[in-house]
Design a protein around this nucleic acid. Sequence first.
DNA 1: AAGATTGTATGATAAGATTCATACAATCTC
DNA 2: GAGATTGTATGAATCTTATCATACAATCTT
Lengths: 125, 125
Amino acid sequence: MLRALTLQDNGVPIYVQLRDQIAGAIGRGDLKAGARLPTMREVAVSLAVDLNTVQRAYAALEEDGLVTMVQGRGSFVADPAPPSRSRSAEIRTLAAKVAAQAQAAGVSLDELAEALRHLSGRAAP
Amino acid sequence: MLRALTLQDNGVPIYVQLRDQIAGAIGRGDLKAGARLPTMREVAVSLAVDLNTVQRAYAALEEDGLVTMVQGRGSFVADPAPPSRSRSAEIRTLAAKVAAQAQAAGVSLDELAEALRHLSGRAAP
DNA sequence: AAGATTGTATGATAAGATTCATACAATCTC
DNA sequence: GAGATTGTATGAATCTTATCATACAATCTT
């Protein structure tokens, strides 16, 4: 289940906030493959935001291969990971995304890398 | 010392990225109270960004009471040290979040950690 | 005092983001 | 098939971001 979307008045464009929050929910597993996303209109109304703005966020998610939209049905978490992409490219993409999160949180990449290695059970080299 | 500032093409306004990165550096202790910030012009030139944009980021930081600017002298970290609360806990939270994303993407934590190290190693000046 | 450095300011311009209003198209339910 | 739901699309208006060019003011160095 998708935790309630929230908007902050911190200069980050609304559609970026929506895109990142939903992408996070998908990556985190809160929204599993095939799960239905809230309707664009639902999001627009609940957040008092324009339908076009929500559409932009959803379109960006589709662009990233995270969701698929079907007219008349709704929007769903995409089933497969993009197959045409090489694995190393996927890793780089994830790393770039994560790097942005880390910077926003004021965490250096080295700090995060170390914390991840710690989580994985191995000690740093 | 302030770690190299970087910009990402992810829809977040440049001045917001600069503001958040510098605020993070201050909160993290990379920039201690009284320390001098890089010149607005230095930042503008090194990142190929307009002086006005950098000024906007700095003005936002001054608005938040994080830095003070003195004409002719430079910009400095404000004296009242910002409350850096439980930093290691923040890092662990971020790491857990990111770990979930990596797992959803089929990327091992070690692979991601290495990719992050790579990103951090070739940071632009 | 002179020159260089640094922050401050402005006005024009272009691109991006957001809203409003409205309409159409595909899908589902009855 | 009729009606409701949902995604798709457009065009205008407004505000925000970012750039460019230029200039001024305070401070420091010499």
